[in-house]
Amino acid sequence: MTLSGEMQILYYAAGVLLAANLLAMALFVLFAKLPDCRFRDTISNVILEIDKFADRMENEQKRRIAIQSINEVLGWRRILVPAALIGWVIDADVAAIRKMQAATGTPNLHERE
């Protein structure tokens, strides 16, 4: 059974989101478990960028711009995805990031800046 182009893109997108969340969780766990070292500092820089992304997506205007940009990219391939579905995925990803922070006890890294 072959998949249509739209379904393949959907599966690839789901796989990319799953892989990104697994990688983020691994980084949060490493940050929480490693002693102070250079590698931990590098991980904290990555976590800071992840946190900044989550902060931007919690901002309604920036979230709307991200949804519009994703729709434009998908529209180029003539794939129509409801904005509500894209917004739900963004909200779920932000919630997952916040839960990862809470589960690993990662401090607010904004205070470093």
Rank of each mutant, 00 (worst) to 15 (best):
M25T: 09
E58A: 07
A66S: 12
I86Q: 10
I79M: 12
I67W: 02
K52D: 06
T104P: 00
Y12W: 09
A24Q: 12
A13L: 06
D55N: 12
S69N: 11
R64F: 06
M100L: 09
A66V: 06
F28N: 05
F31A: 11
D55H: 11
F39N: 04
E113F: 13
S69C: 05
E58R: 14
I65E: 13
V94A: 10
E60C: 03
A92M: 11
A14I: 15
N45S: 14
A54I: 02
I47E: 04
P82N: 10
L10V: 13
E60L: 10
R98W: 02
Y11M: 14
T106P: 01
S69I: 02
Q8P: 01
K99C: 04
M100H: 05
W76K: 13
V29N: 03
R77E: 10
E111R: 14
R64C: 04
L85R: 09
R77F: 13
S44A: 13
A96P: 02
P35D: 07
R77T: 07
S44N: 11
D41I: 00
E113N: 10
N71C: 06
R40M: 04
V81M: 07
Y11R: 14
M7E: 15
L10D: 15
T104D: 01
D55R: 12
I43R: 01
S44L: 01
E60H: 10
I65L: 08
E72K: 13
F28A: 06
L48T: 09
I9S: 08
E111G: 02
Y12S: 13
N59R: 03
L109V: 05
A95C: 05
V81Y: 05
V46E: 08
R77A: 11
A26L: 11
L109I: 06
L10E: 15
L17G: 09
R56G: 02
D93A: 15
R78I: 00
R64D: 14
D41Y: 01
M100D: 02
V81K: 07
T42H: 12
E60K: 10
R40D: 02
A84M: 15
L30A: 09
A20V: 04
L30P: 00
M7D: 13
T42Y: 12
I67C: 04
E113C: 04
A102D: 12
M7F: 11
A19H: 09
I70H: 07
D93T: 15
A14M: 15
L74D: 03
E6R: 15
P82W: 09
